[in-house]
Amino acid sequence: MARIIVVTSGKGGVGKTTTSAAFGAGLARAGHRTVVVDFDVGLRNLDLIMGCERRVVYDFVNVINGEANLNQALIRDKRTEGLSILPASQTRDKDALTFEGVQTVLEGLAKDHDYIVCDSPAGIERGAHLAMYFADEALIVTNPEVSSVRDSDRVLGLLASKTRRAEQDDEPIREHLVITRYAPERVGKGEMLSVEDVCEILSIDLLGVIPESTAVLNASNSGVPVILEEKTDAGQAYDDVVARFLGEAREHRFIDEKKGLFGRLFKG
């Protein structure tokens, strides 16, 4: 039985698609058949972040409308074995995603995948609601910044009430916090909420912390999931996230200030 994982945040621009691409690639690299589904109808971008934008022929909405089958629409990643992408449609029709359509597509994908990663659009409208509705687990992507934390809390409320598991009184969705764009030196100066602050406010389990890193923009520039850039801090942080998700115990890295000799002398 495939696990459905939604990557969500409420607020836009916090790193959902970056996280979906890296997380999906990491699961596939660990040997799990994984598909990443772009729910951002009208603003397709997962294809670009994963470097397969020129291979999109059919999309999610084509499959829902019966204009293509899943096999025709799925793009197999060329770098990572066992990884596929289902691109979003660029249609402007907001009602293109239907409840039954999404359910049918997810059931189809569940047949030959271990993990279905749903990349949610920003906001709490239809696309975001459908992305989370069928989920078994959720990655809440949050920046250490007031509006992002507040929106994440709002999304946690929706996960607990407006999803299939909530409506059917099943075991609740497992929620995992992923803090992105973290800058330990700014936390040290009291300019940024700390990991502890964010965890205390949201009170969910911390899966990982991704440091603010030039590697993320570099990877998106070239269309490579940042987790594949193994020498970079962000790539390693995402690798930890995947390993922890799969049950491995790993220490959190990149959450303390790098201190030079001078800093050590004066700050102790």
Partner: peptide, 23 residues
Amino acid sequence: KTSASVAKERLQVIVARERSHRG
């Protein structure tokens, strides 16, 4: 007070208020 501690206090208040309306 650092700006981060102000942020934390404001968040705690607003999040608690919004949670009380939830559901």
